[in-house]
């Protein structure tokens, strides 16, 4: 009995490796060298227009430059960028309930469900670059938002320099755009999850005398939990890696009010030509995101296992 069991286990393990192998091979082919190279670069000095072969070993200089004030200006910029990233991260906590609420509401209606769903997916479908330009237009000093506020008599709320142009409104305005863009992806995940719930289960639970909360806890939540984990990790990664909307809409301005780490990374790498510091920053954020994701996995872990 024991022998045949271990033979089966061995066969199962072999099958496991076989099934994972193509994904691993692809990573070895395309990802590994790229990643190692990039990590390596973070320990080198590499100036503007220099060849990678002429990089000079820098030890921990690059990390000290932006983390510990060896380069005062860069450290200041990095700190501000990180704080802004964390604000965007907090916004993820808003996106998830919105996405869930819309998914639930969408599931409740009977007519036009398909039309609504199609429309709700539009922010995801419309090409990102073009849509950020549109938002820029909405936020401009003479843009739709200011005109709307003027029309309804809320002149005191008007952002004279545009919503992306004032120190205290730029980041919130940007975050609204980010929320707008990230709801559909999460909404459709929740919607798909809710669809898989067998309505008979609710009926059965009702017959067992379960209350509304119990139904949610016992039937809905087990389906929604893994989805929430995905949304949380996606949102966290999105928040810490945010780049496109900031780069297109504000480039980190005004006065660094919307500076985020990836914009700083990009500027260091491709405007200042300092690949070393750029890679060091990029990988520091990698570590941060990774740790935060592990924590959220822990918290939302499946307790039945």
């Amino acid at each position: 009995m024991k022998n045949s069991f271990s033979a089966m286990a061995r066969r199962e393990a072999a099958a496991g490796y076989l099934l994972v192998a193509p994904a691993i091979l692809l990573f070895l082919l395309i990802g590994l060298f790229t990643v190692l190279f990039s990590i390596g670069l973070s320990f080198y000095h590499l100036g503007q227009g220099s060849l990678i072969t002429s990089a000079k070993f820098a030890g921990l200089d690059n990390f000290q430059n932006f983390l510990f004030g060896r380069d005062l200006n860069l450290s200041r910029a990095f700190k501000q960028a990180l704080v802004n990233n964390l604000w965007v991260l907090l916004s993820t906590l808003v996106v998830i309930p919105i996405a869930l609420a819309i998914a639930v509401m969408l599931q409740r209606i009977s007519k036009g469900i398909r039309l609504y769903r199609t429309v709700f997916l539009l922010p995801m479908v419309t090409s990102s670059v073009a849509i950020y330009y549109v938002w820029q237009g909405i936020y401009e000093p003479e843009g739709t938002l200011n005109k709307l506020l003027a029309a309804i008599g809320l002149d005191s709320l008007i952002a004279v320099n545009g919503w992306l142009g004032e120190l205290h409104t730029a980041l919130p305005a940007l975050i609204v755009t980010v929320i707008w863009g990230s709801v559909p992806g999460m909404m459709i995940l929740y919607f798909a999850g809710l669809q898989t719930v067998d309505p008979h289960l609710y009926e059965a639970a009702e017959m067992d005398g379960a209350g509304a909360w119990q139904k949610i806890y016992r039937i809905t939540w087990p389906i929604l939990r893994p989805i929430t984990v995905i949304c949380l990790i996606m949102g966290m990664n999105g928040a810490l890696q945010i780049f496109d909307p900031v780069w297109i809409m504000t480039k980190g301005g005004p006065a660094n009010a919307t500076e985020v780490v990836n914009v700083l990374v990009y500027q260091q790498a491709f405007v200042n030509g300092d690949m070393g510091v750029a890679n060091a920053m990029g990988w520091s954020i990698f570590v941060l995101t990774f740790v935060l994701s592990l924590i959220s996995l822990r918290i939302l872990r499946d307790k039945s296992e």
Partner: peptide
């Protein structure tokens, strides 16, 4: 890099969130 500090402070001065004297002091530090 120090001029990036200047640039950000200049924007703050335009927006009325900083005075020229403060901006100059900040730049000199950078």
């Amino acid at each position: 890099p120090e001029w990036q500090t200047f640039h950000a402070d200049m924007q703050k001065v335009i927006l009325g969130n900083m005075t020229a004297a403060e901006a100059a002091e900040d730049f000199d530090k950078a």
